[in-house]
Design a protein around this nucleic acid. Sequence first.
DNA 1: CTATCTTTCGGTAACGTACCCGGAAAAACG
DNA 2: CGTTTTTCCGGGTACGTTACCGAAAGATAG
Lengths: 357, 357
Amino acid sequence: MKKQSGEQPLGVKEIARRANVAIATVDRVIHNRPGVSPKTKSKIEAIIRELNYQPNILARRLASRHVLRLATLLPKVSSEETDFWTLPVAGIQKAEEEIKQFGVKIEPYYFDLNNRKSFAKVAKQILKNPADGILLAPSFIEESVSFIRSCKELKIPYVFINSDIPQQESLCYIGPDLFRSGYQAGQLIHYCTPRDTRVLVLNVSHEIEDHHHLLRKEEGLRAYFANTARPIVKKDIQQTDPASIEKVLTKALQQHPDTRAVFVTNSRVAAVSRFLEKRARKNKDQNILLIGYDFTKENVSRLDQGHIDFLICQQPGEQGYRGIMALYQHLVMKVPVEKTHFMPIDIITKENHAFYI
Amino acid sequence: MKKQSGEQPLGVKEIARRANVAIATVDRVIHNRPGVSPKTKSKIEAIIRELNYQPNILARRLASRHVLRLATLLPKVSSEETDFWTLPVAGIQKAEEEIKQFGVKIEPYYFDLNNRKSFAKVAKQILKNPADGILLAPSFIEESVSFIRSCKELKIPYVFINSDIPQQESLCYIGPDLFRSGYQAGQLIHYCTPRDTRVLVLNVSHEIEDHHHLLRKEEGLRAYFANTARPIVKKDIQQTDPASIEKVLTKALQQHPDTRAVFVTNSRVAAVSRFLEKRARKNKDQNILLIGYDFTKENVSRLDQGHIDFLICQQPGEQGYRGIMALYQHLVMKVPVEKTHFMPIDIITKENHAFYI
DNA sequence: CTATCTTTCGGTAACGTACCCGGAAAAACG
DNA sequence: CGTTTTTCCGGGTACGTTACCGAAAGATAG
């Protein structure tokens, strides 16, 4: 079908005609470039507003000699620790695939989650040849704040992914609402275990990582049970090896034999499930509900085998995808983007994980 | 940053140069238009393959004088019955928003879910001025098959959304795996109610609608409990008014006082929740788990008030979005699309519904 | 008043593709 | 062999924007 001439996407040409100037002049005011007298500038601006001019993105990208560079600053995917970040990276690649035709290029940078310094080092590297936009996981708060200060000076927009640092004028935040996800865990425990049994909260993580995030989840869980008499106990496990987990857990369960639910506040739930499986073999009567976080390969495998009951996930792939798209929307399409994208709190079970991403 | 000359997106110009022909000739080959001798045609085709030529979509759409028309054939959103289809429609609009700059236009058609004939009528209307692609919900199997027969003759690609008719050479199917969603409901019931209590399956629907779909969900539920001794009973309610529901349910619960879970196989769960709420007020001891389908406004409201325990949802908005995008990918980008897009089986609760969609 | 610099603007060649138009060569016809 | 038809192909313009180059007008200095 031929293009309807009924509707009229008026372009620069029409603006130029109406303003009695050349196309080049219209272009100058559109891009806020110098070389236009205030008089003609305001005249052209008026006409642009009047026509509600929408630039043709296709023609713009086609004619533009620039390619937009977006940098990503994320944790390295370490197979031995957790492969959580593979999915966001995949989402980012999907986004790149979609928009690379429009002159967008992504430059990935990775830091080591076990090494604060590596973050600062890689961040400095990015600033050496600054990109037009940045997507970062602000795992280390102090270092991140220092980095984005530089970004602000250079007027480079940045978006936070997976964890937020509020009040930092980021373009937007894309990730979970940690508190509410803990609250959701509370509901599952409430539905699946007897009212008077104990809940064990487990923080399995090195000191270096953000305890703050884990605490928010715990707070959410406790909030759910705030008006009940449910006994809750919390244990920290600083070493992530099986032996340390076994030691702490054995003691905790001995101390609190009424425990019927374990809530692991991060993706290390697979390791916990190994211990509980072993214990259940010896100790047939006990059936403990196990809930944890994140759609890692190992967790899903343990879920599938029935050793984890629920995983709470927050669409990690989508987070990466949306992060890039938010920068794209802002830089290319120049449309305002929502400040906060809370991801859905997905409940993953043995029965539905096959359909998840 | 300037465009790198390092990488080379070779275009028609380069192909023409290498083949020693004019650009127009290359264009003819690319679009399989007549007027090229077999010799030169194969020569050009060889070069295209060799260079792995990827046309520049931007330039293509910019130069093209055609606008792609996509028709959607969906149930009318009826506020009094169920507003399920508002979300897919919203997803379709979002997709249109994204790709309308690329010369894609969507023409929506709606039929009445309570009237088979209206489907056929609207379908005929579409065929009067056929679009380039069609997205349809094949709610009435016979009528749909007849419609897509015409589409096949006209070589118009079509995609099914929300429910499938297998073996019909559709471009793809986008929607739920009904069986597995019922299976998932089984798991929730298993976790949340005592082992030996009864499960009541409820089909609340007019005769005219697809009972087949509801049956698949029931099969899934029964499959979950296949190797257990769990008592399951099924009731059909043909009239959707509160009185009919009350009548059937009162009788069923009297007959089976051991019922502790009710599984409603579609979005009419809100109506069921009203009855159960009333009953619980009189009859304080009984606490019955209620699980149903779909993220309708009413269901969410009942969920939020605590009268529904779980809703199983399948990202209705995403379904519409993906359906349009699949047609776009196929018609504009000419890339192959996956035959089956099973949507995730999302478990929605009072605690997480606020983050959904 | 002329020379030089600055500000302001217009003309126009790209970007990669689609497609119209007209012309040359080849084939068919008489 | 001349004429018509068909087949095959190249030239060139258009799509809406970007951005370079240089011209005209105005400002400043000598």
